[in-house]
């Protein structure tokens, strides 16, 4: 078991942002965290890492910061690169939690750059790249941390279609290697296609948890997302395309 949340509750000044969430994510799972804007996805991820005050128990939050940094990597929603640093230097920041080992560090950085298709970018200045390219650099940074668990907050937002597919494939590969990935995703079609399991959140509570076809039902989509859409099974996998709002 990689992550266990028990009765996790987060109160922000006047409201309950995450309410009584219990969740267990095991090895080899790629969990898509779904929910409309403001459902509490970001708050849930941050509280699970112990970055927010919370009630209940998260198996990550109880670790020491150093141990947690070796157990889980986090890609925040806000893409930020403050200084004009080389791409390879940004990615190498992911090695900070690990005891110094230059050779291993360089190999991990190379692997992360290759996985995100950034091998030709390593000497470019990160702040001079486009928003989508910077997002890929920051994903590579999280990959270089080389942890059993990856929490990513809207990793594919702002990426071009090829980069979206490549990123989802990388996360699915990580899960196949026996790691675990939890990613909040707004693109229901990408989530249906790549995730092994979907968790749907509405107003801070988990309302559905299971295989993609069991979560993306017409009833739940209408109730939680106010949309209806087109489902099909294709040789490439399940396809879902939202078509219209319900109300």
């Amino acid at each position: 078991m990689t992550l266990t949340l028990q009765n996790l509750t987060v109160r922000r000044s006047d409201r309950v942002a995450v309410q009584d969430v219990s969740l267990t994510v095991g090895k080899g799972e790629f969990v898509g965290l779904l929910g409309p804007n403001g459902a509490g996805k970001t708050t849930l991820l941050r509280a699970a890492l112990g970055l927010l005050p919370h009630e209940g128990v998260s198996s990550l939050a109880v670790l020491s910061p150093a141990a947690r940094a070796r157990a889980a990597a986090f890609l925040p929603q806000t893409r930020e690169i403050a200084w004009p640093v080389r791409v390879a230097d940004v990615v190498a920041l992911g090695r900070a939690p690990h005891p110094a080992g230059r050779a291993g560090d360089a190999a991990a950085v190379d692997r992360a750059l290759t996985r995100m298709g950034l091998s030709d970018y390593r000497d470019r200045i990160a702040t001079a790249l486009s928003g989508g390219e910077q997002a890929r650099v920051l994903i590579a940074r999280a990959l270089a941390q080389d942890t059993p668990l990856l929490l990513a907050d809207e990793p594919v937002a702002g990426l071009d279609p090829a980069a979206q597919l490549r990123t989802m494939k990388v996360f699915a590969d990580l899960a196949n290697e026996g790691r675990s990935v939890i990613a909040s995703i707004h693109d229901l079609g990408l989530a249906a296609l790549h995730c092994t399991r979907l968790v749907m959140v509405e107003r801070g509570r988990i309302v559905a948890d299971g295989a993609p076809r069991d979560v993306l039902t017409d009833a739940l989509l209408a109730r939680v997302f106010d949309v209806r859409g087109f489902h099909a099974d294709t040789p490439d996998g399940p396809v879902f395309q939202p078509l219209a709002t319900v109300r």
């Binding site: 941050r46 890492l49 970055l51 910061p65 150093a66 947690r68 940094a69 889980a72 990597a73 986090f74 890609l75 925040p76 806000t78 930020e80 690169i81 403050a82 200084w83 640093v85 940004v90 920041l93 992911g94 900070a96 939690p97 920051l138 940074r141 999280a142 941390q145």
Partner: peptide, 15 residues
């Protein structure tokens, strides 16, 4: 250095 990629990311790296 870690803070270059933001406060949350830095904290998740053990800062």
């Amino acid at each position: 250095d870690a803070l270059t990629v933001g406060e949350d990311a830095a904290r998740s790296m053990g800062v």
